[in-house]
Amino acid sequence: MPNSSYKTRIERMKSRRKGSLDQKHVATESISNPRYDGLEHYALLENALDLPENWESRGASDSATRYVIGAMQPVDSRYTQISLETAGRIQNQLNKKLTQSLEFRVQGSVPLDIHIKGFSDVDLLIIDQQMLMYALKGIGSYRPSEKDSRDVIIALREAACDALKSAFPAAHVDDNNNKSLRITGGSLQREVDVVPSIWWDTVEYQMTKSEDDRGVTIINKSTREHIYNAPFLHIKRIKDKCDQCNGGLRKSIRLLKTLKADSKEEGKDINLSSYDIASLMFHADADNLRHNAFYELAVLVETHRWLNYLCQNPDNAKQLDVPNETRKILEKPESFTALLELTGIVNSVVTEVLRETTGIPDEFYSYKMSDVLKNKVVY
């Protein structure tokens, strides 16, 4: 891929990480509106974030190497802070306006610090405590409820929808998604997905009483089907694996999510979710990812190696579970095709990075990538 293409990708990545002009305009407009109190500190945070980031001076200008290094980096922590505080504003209003006994948790990419957008949306679980689901094979002692869990969750959704419209009259509350409500605009600095749910006490939770092992139950409002998930175990296992490899896992996930986002901008949508991408790289070699503490391109080396291994061994790839073991990662037939597509994009990036870091013409690329890149630290 010519450098002009990477120039476009780098500019797109800067916009994604720092917010588009439209996003910044909306944020500034809402902050300056005197009807909204307590937002002054947002202005101080947002306005300070147009400064160049460290990665923008690493590698040659408009190079694939600079693009890869930038794609690995976390979004500035101040952006993440605003995302979490926006979810907190939603939580405070729902606590005030709803009569149920509620608990709240944030799930998804933001608490894991694997989001790639400065103006990243946030998933907020709202958990009704009046009843719960539990695994029958567990050791816990429960008294069955006479209530229908589907009715409880749908009633919570309806009450939350009304409460959000009342609390944020200038915002838009979208009730069309089957699993969640989405609130945007007005004084809110981020989009927030509100997910009505109740607790699900898994077999493991009944033994350990650790919230990491506890799940949640949500409802598909169209079909009224239960959906069981264990988001806290997913978060814990990704975090633990990332600690083992000095942050290398997060860097790999961000890199692949960035490649996926740019591929979509360029007309090719890769049908793997952020969750799927994180799950695939969760199974990569921690020792190989750990080397990023000394040379960051080691993350690209292991990402390249692991994805190509999966493509060459489809039976093994299709047996991999998501980190919380609730399903197979590639459970849909089209998911393996998407893996092949994503791997092809990684391979093209690798070819360009090799060209830049070695200066060797294409016809001489007989080196192992790990041998070439491990001594090419880009400062």
Rank of each mutant, 00 (worst) to 15 (best):
residue 52 P to V: 09
residue 337 T to W: 08
residue 109 S to W: 01
residue 298 A to V: 00
residue 357 T to G: 02
residue 15 S to N: 13
residue 332 K to N: 07
residue 35 R to M: 11
residue 36 Y to T: 04
residue 155 A to P: 01
residue 294 F to Y: 15
residue 12 R to I: 03
residue 183 I to Y: 11
residue 31 I to T: 04
residue 297 L to K: 01
residue 221 K to N: 08
residue 197 S to N: 01
residue 339 L to F: 11
residue 192 V to Q: 07
residue 42 Y to P: 00
residue 6 Y to P: 01
residue 185 G to N: 04
residue 36 Y to W: 05
residue 30 S to P: 00
residue 363 E to A: 10
residue 47 N to K: 10
residue 32 S to M: 10
residue 43 A to R: 14
residue 80 T to C: 02
residue 299 V to L: 01
residue 353 V to L: 05
residue 284 A to W: 03
residue 266 E to T: 03
residue 125 L to C: 12
residue 370 S to F: 14
residue 329 I to H: 08
residue 45 L to Q: 01
residue 192 V to Y: 12
residue 362 D to K: 08
residue 147 K to W: 11
residue 207 M to I: 07
residue 142 Y to M: 08
residue 218 I to Y: 06
residue 95 N to L: 15
residue 142 Y to Q: 01
residue 263 S to N: 15
residue 85 E to W: 12
residue 130 Q to I: 13
residue 317 A to V: 14
residue 106 V to S: 04
residue 55 W to H: 05
residue 294 F to I: 13
residue 227 I to K: 00
residue 3 N to V: 09
residue 277 I to Q: 05
residue 88 G to T: 09
residue 303 T to A: 15
residue 124 L to Q: 12
residue 99 T to A: 13
residue 363 E to M: 07
residue 65 T to D: 13
residue 10 I to S: 02
residue 40 E to L: 02
residue 182 R to A: 13
residue 217 T to C: 10
residue 154 I to Y: 09
residue 213 D to N: 13
residue 17 R to N: 03
residue 3 N to T: 10
residue 340 L to F: 07
residue 289 L to I: 11
residue 201 D to Q: 10
residue 140 G to K: 07
residue 10 I to C: 02
residue 193 D to N: 10
residue 358 T to C: 13
residue 190 R to F: 15
residue 201 D to P: 03
residue 264 K to Q: 11
residue 167 A to H: 04
residue 2 P to Q: 04
residue 349 V to N: 04
residue 249 L to M: 10
residue 303 T to G: 03
residue 200 W to P: 02
residue 235 I to Y: 06
residue 43 A to K: 14
residue 134 Y to T: 00
residue 311 C to I: 06
residue 285 D to C: 14
residue 174 D to N: 08
residue 24 K to T: 07
residue 306 W to C: 06
residue 215 G to H: 12
residue 374 K to V: 14
residue 128 D to I: 10
residue 22 D to H: 11
residue 5 S to E: 10
residue 351 T to S: 08
residue 201 D to W: 14
residue 354 L to H: 09
residue 58 R to V: 13
residue 209 K to Y: 10
residue 249 L to W: 11
residue 76 D to Y: 11
residue 75 V to K: 01
residue 202 T to R: 03
residue 334 E to L: 12
residue 96 K to W: 04
residue 205 Y to M: 06
residue 127 I to R: 01
residue 102 L to T: 05
residue 341 E to F: 12
residue 131 M to Y: 00
residue 259 L to W: 10
residue 149 S to P: 09
residue 106 V to K: 06
residue 225 E to V: 01
residue 294 F to R: 05
residue 154 I to L: 15
residue 232 F to D: 00
residue 336 F to G: 05
residue 58 R to N: 13
residue 157 R to Y: 06
residue 136 L to P: 07
residue 293 A to D: 15
residue 378 V to L: 15
residue 243 D to Q: 07
residue 32 S to C: 06
residue 125 L to V: 10
residue 61 S to C: 02
residue 298 A to H: 06
residue 288 N to P: 00
residue 28 T to I: 09
residue 150 R to F: 01
residue 347 N to K: 11
residue 317 A to Y: 07
residue 97 K to R: 09
residue 168 F to Q: 02
residue 259 L to G: 03
residue 58 R to Q: 15
residue 306 W to S: 08
residue 281 M to Y: 08
residue 312 Q to S: 07
residue 57 S to H: 12
